[in-house]
Amino acid sequence: MPADVTTALKEKFPQVTERASADHPAVDVPLVDLIAVLSYLRDGQGFDLLMDLTAIDWAEGAAPRFSVVYHLYSTAKPGTYVRVVAPCAGTEAEPTAPSAVEIWPAANWHERECFDMFGIKFQGHPDLRRILMWDGYPYHPLRKEFPLAGIETDLPVADIAEETGTKVIAAPMAGGPFVASPGEINLTEAEPRAKDESWSDRVARPDQTALRQMKE
């Protein structure tokens, strides 16, 4: 009974508000009450499975800039599903949220991914390291200000970077699969390729000269 979850939550926590949702119930929770609400949902409402933990970047300058989202499922009452959203505290550069590892151990890696992609510091997390990008990567790629192509930086391992002379570069986006050219959709032409021709089969990449000489 989805409506019951929201009603029960509102009775116990008056500061909880309902959130527009197309299917399952969803609630907005102030950050200070987040852990109490999540604990209650697990112990009082039987939401024993943390299905997903993610975040939303509401755009630069928005208040709040980031929200954390918890997707909860109850294995005791199959089909019962609820989402909890809480705005992050902290600054835009370093948003914070409390860690849910104590409630669901599954939150551990989810929070690491969330930290990796959005830079949200989960306070109380036992081991808040990056999980997808390498340690020492300077950016958080799913933030709105980060371009899909990436930003030039160094390879993760210094001696390999020196040996190969290669850097992490911004990927060429022109003509790529994520770049739509309005009005001229021709499937043959839309094949992934760099339309700027800086990396075509006719023009060598500038950083290839060293490797080619090494091979000769």
Binding site: L132, M133, P147, G150, A170, A171, M173, P192
Partner: peptide
């Protein structure tokens, strides 16, 4: 198809 920040080109 991975023209992205994470993939070696």
């Amino acid at each position: 198809m991975y023209r992205s920040y994470a993939t070696l080109q």
